[in-house]
Design a protein around this nucleic acid. Structure first.
Length: 416
DNA sequence: CGTCCACAGGAATGACGGGCGG
DNA sequence: CCGCCCGTCATTCCTGTGGACG
């Protein structure tokens, strides 16, 4: 076969590939469609709540909650986008600022973000929180507006930083003369209320909107809405569509998940050179997504967290299914020795374990062994094959994964 | 029924790299 | 340049505790 034949094949394949998608962007979960099925009620409710700003009055604070992928962010953005275009029509002094608290991360940066949206300059570090908050306050008051602040994924911020920020924001109106603030808080966690100061809670939830999970039928409709623009005609089988909806419904009623499944299934089909996306591609997509999620998580943790994982890897290889903190720390220390790195304290490793638990790379449970103390039983939530695969690229870690450990010989017998 | 293990996990503190305003 | 503050990571010190064992 000569070279031009090979190229012909490659090109042929690529051209064949375009059979599946029309526009895959439509399937991204951050894509904002112009219709949001099964959320009419919430749209109406939020719309009614914010409407007063069109007449120059402050609107009530709103507290929105529901699990991931139930459309909270989409509905909020949808309503506020429409509100903003309306305000231009009416020429009302309304401004909206959307903040994702999980990405922004700290109180300081939230204030910085708010300042930035008002055109007030603040350095991204260097000032005291009080200073930034003052600048925000004066900047806000002098711009004479109705300011709507959307705090998305508010639970992430509160769990790590407390409700200080919310407390200040809910009270800020008392110190303003020319401007007013309204808050829209969005939380994935229903129990968030328990973490909040009652005063903050009552002020924040002047209005409440609940987003229930979608059921399989609703998910199917949501997907269906986007299928026409996303896929070529006939490139998606009905079975594949239903399966995506069913799988996502079984999990949390998570639309984001359903969209991801559908998009990846399409990509799988494309790569296989198939003309139609079928159930099997969806199953494949499911594995694919999970695999990537875990591999990414493994890559994006610090060296010491990786060493904790490698410790568990070795224990699990020696048939210790559920290790305890002490065992892990021992092996971890040895691994550090191998690398010539000074080990962290057990206290620190303990919180690393908790963090890894939260990400889902391992499972940690506090248990009491009575006479023999109180500790955490820790087990790996990742297959050993995947760990080998991910760490193989890394020189040092690859060696650690392959090597034999002295301290392990003692545990090898014990088992359990 | 008390003891006591092997830690859990909170609080205080510090080192460090970044960046301020004066 | 200085003194100050930030967030992050880590250490040190600490008090708390479920339940098997004696």
């Amino acid at each position: 076969m000569n070279n031009s034949n090979i190229l012909d094949e490659v090109f042929e394949e690529f051209v064949g590939n375009t059979q599946i998608f029309n526009d895959r962007e439509v399937l991204r979960h951050d894509y904002l469609p112009d219709r949001l099925p099964h959320r009419e009620e919430q749209i109406k409710c939020l719309g009614q709540t914010v409407a007063p700003v069109l007449k120059g009055a402050r609107c009530s604070n709103v507290f929105i909650y529901g699990k991931t992928g139930t459309g909270k962010t989409a509905v909020t953005k949808y309503v506020l986008n429409h509100l903003e275009t309306k305000t231009k029509e009416f020429d009302s002094p309304v401004k909206v600022c959307y903040v994702n608290c999980r990405l922004i991360g700290t109180e300081y940066r939230v204030f910085a973000r708010l300042c930035q949206s008002l055109g007030v300059f603040v350095p991204f570090t260097g000032l005291s929180v009080g200073e930034v908050s003052d600048r925000f306050r004066t900047g806000l008051d002098s711009s004479k507006i109705l300011f709507i602040i959307v705090l998305d994924e508010i639970d992430a911020l509160i769990k790590t930083r407390g409700d200080n920020l919310l407390y200040e924001l809910t009270r800020i109106n008392g110190t303003l003369y020319n401007s007013k603030v309204s808050l829209v808080g969005i939380s994935n966690d229903l129990r968030l209320k328990e973490f909040l100061d009652p005063r903050v809670l009552s002020s924040l939830s002047e209005e409440e909107i609940v987003f229930r999970p979608y059921d399989a039928g609703e998910l199917k409709n949501i997907l269906f809405e986007r299928v026409h623009s996303a896929f070529r005609d006939g490139a998606l089988s009905n079975g594949a569509l239903s399966l995506c909806a069913a799988l996502a419904a079984a999990e949390h009623g998570d639309a984001r998940r359903a969209l991801d499944l559908l998009r990846v299934a399409g990509e799988v089909a494309e790569r296989r050179g198939a003309k139609v996306v079928v159930e099997e591609h969806v199953r494949e997509a499911e594995k694919h997504i999970e695999h990537n999620r875990v591999a990414d998580a493994l890559k994006n943790i610090t060296l010491h967290s990786k060493l904790v994982i490698v410790s568990l890897f070795h224990l699990s290889r020696a048939n210790v299914r559920r290790a305890i903190t002490g065992e892990i720390y021992e092996i971890y220390s040895e691994l550090c020795g191998e690398l010539g790195v000074t080990p962290l304290t057990q206290r620190r490793v303990s919180t690393l374990v908790n963090e890894l638990d939260a990400v889902g790379l391992l499972n940690a449970q506090v248990i009491s062994m009575g006479r023999y103390g109180r500790t955490k039983k820790i087990s790996l939530e990742v297959t050993r094959t995947l760990i080998r695969e991910v760490f193989a690229d890394d020189n040092r870690l690859g060696r650690l994964v392959r090597c034999k450990l002295k301290s392990l010989s003692r545990h090898a017998r014990g088992g359990s």
